[in-house]
Structure formats: C-alpha cells, structure tokens
C-alpha cells in the first residue's frame, strides 16, 4: 500500500497524499467514547430527575401506605385538592376561549397592538410567580391601589377564591395561545383561502377548516395549562394565603404539611400530584406524536 503506484499524471502540486491505513483502530476508541457519553447522560438524568422521583416513591412506602392514604383522604387534604381541580377547570375553560381568539388575532390579523399582544402573552413565562402575586397584591390587595373601589363594591379578591383564580389565569396565559399561534403559523392560510373561494362563511371556515387542523394543538395547550394550573404555588400562596378549607390548594397544602413535619400528608399529596403529572405527560406525549403527524400531513 505504501508503495502506491501513481495513477495518472497529477494535475496539481502534490501534497502528502491520503493513505489507506488498514491497522486503524479508531473505531474502537470511538465506541468507548460513545459508551462514556451515554453513561454521563444517564448519570445526569439519574441525579437530577430519576433519583429524586424514585426517592419520593420510596419515602411514601417507607412511611406506610395506610398512614399516607388516611392523611391524603382527610378533609383538609381533599378540600385542597378539590380547590386545585376547580382552578384547573376554570383556567382550562377560560384559556380555551381566550387562547383561541388571541392566537387567531396574533397570526391571522394585522392591527395596532398586535406586537404588544404577542409580547404580553409571552411575559408570564419570564416572570416569577411570587412577583405576580405581589403585583396583584399591590393592585387589589387590602392596601392596594384599587382597595377603595373594591371595598365600596364589597369585593374580596386577595385571600379569597378570586385571588387564586387571577393568579392561576396569569401563569397559564401563554400556553394555549402560543401553542395555537405556532400551529396556525405552520399550517398557513391556503386551506382557509380555498374554503373562502368555495363560498364558505367565516364561521364555516373556522369550524370546518381551521378548527379541525388545530384541534390537537388546542388539546396540547390545554393539557399544559392544566398541568401549570395544578402545580402553581408561588402566586396562589401570595394571593390566597393558604387558609385551610378556604384558599388552600394542593401545593400550598404540601408546603404547610412539610413545614409542620406532617410528612405523611405532605409527601402523600406530593406523590398524588406527581402521579397526576405523569398521566398528563403521557397524554401530552400522545398528542405530540399526533401533532407531528398532523403537521407533516398539512405541509
């Protein structure tokens, strides 16, 4: 091989030509590197994600299923969970409506304030939930800017259910709107234009053409909304105050229980929320595959 016969006349100045090296073992080293990288990633996921998840499950079973069950099924815990589920339901309904309108406006309309709408819809993702609670406290709290008005109307927002609703709506605002806006942008307008040329009215176009195309995305956005609403802590703690039986949600229940070392209830509820989020995640994954297929089809 080294004494390679020169084939043809070199047309250009020669440099040290490439040579075949049959004894090359770089393949083996490459395989070793691959295994090492895989091990690092698995270790990382174990330390950050899988380990803590497993630890909670192990701790709950160490405390004893019976004790944990009776703590989680006690009235304060059930009330807190019911409160969280009510907040999930409200935020899903409101976001289904406002998210759809907002997304269509963002992607399909041109109007003054469109850029503002887009930026503000993104903002809750960048803001700490505690800060949101504080902002509403300053606006509608007992000493807030609007306190005189609310007092005159006899409305109680902070440390009451409306406060929880407002905080939850704030943090869930981006999910449905952004998801729908992204998909509307991706699928484009050609189908809607086709419907219009065939004489469909605006409502007919929306219900028969646009909506079926974004149905999966809407479901995805609403599931994210539900997960976020269920898990919100900072804003509902500040705005609700975690009053047992009145404004305590599942997350603030966990917080209080852990503070008071009532670990059976705290860890038990944490496991309940963790299990719900695993179910939500499974649904999200299912929709993600459907969405990928749907987008692939419309393109």
């Amino acid at each position: 091989m080294r004494a390679e016969r020169d084939v043809g006349a070199p047309a250009i100045a020669p440099v040290e030509a490439a040579k075949l090296d049959a004894r090359d073992t770089r393949g083996d080293r490459l395989a070793a590197g691959r295994v090492a990288l895989g091990a690092v990633v698995v270790l990382y996921l174990a330390v950050v994600l899988l380990g803590p998840m497993g630890a909670l499950v192990a701790e709950v079973s160490r405390i004893g299923i019976g004790e944990v069950l009776s703590a989680v099924l006690a009235p304060p815990a059930l009330e807190a969970l019911g409160m969280s589920i009510a907040l999930v339901a409200i935020s899903v309904v409101v976001n289904a409506f406002v998210g759809t309108i907002g997304a269509i406006a963002l992607v399909r309309h041109r109007f003054v304030g469109r850029g503002l709408l887009g930026a503000l819809a993104d903002l809750p993702l960048a803001v700490s939930p505690v800060m949101i609670g504080l902002a509403f406290l300053l606006l509608v709290g007992r000493e807030g800017v609007l306190a005189p008005v609310l007092e005159a109307l006899d409305w109680k927002i902070v440390y009451a259910f409306p406060g929880l609703v407002i905080g939850t709506l704030f943090v869930t605002l981006p999910y449905t709107m952004r998801e729908l806006a992204y998909v509307l942008e991706e699928i484009g307008t050609s189908e809607e234009e086709a419907a219009a040329t065939l004489g469909a009215s605006a409502w007919q176009t929306f219900w028969h053409v646009t909506f079926p195309n974004v149905r999966v995305a809407l479901g995805y956005g609403l599931l994210m909304t539900a997960a976020r609403a269920l898990g919100e802590f900072g804003a509902v703690l500040v705005l609700g105050g975690s009053i047992s039986g009145q404004t305590q949600t599942a997350t603030t229940f966990i917080h209080d229980a852990v503070e008071e070392r009532a670990l059976a209830g705290g860890y038990g509820m944490a496991l309940v929320l963790g299990a719900i989020s695993v179910v939500l995640l499974a649904l999200l994954e299912h929709l993600k595959h459907r969405r990928a297929r749907a987008l692939g089809r419309t393109k």
Partner: peptide, 8 residues
Amino acid sequence: HVHARARA
C-alpha cells in the same frame, strides 16, 4: 473493516 475515516 477499515474505518471510513482511514480509507483515504
């Protein structure tokens, strides 16, 4: 069985 990289 020579690696692509070494085949020149």
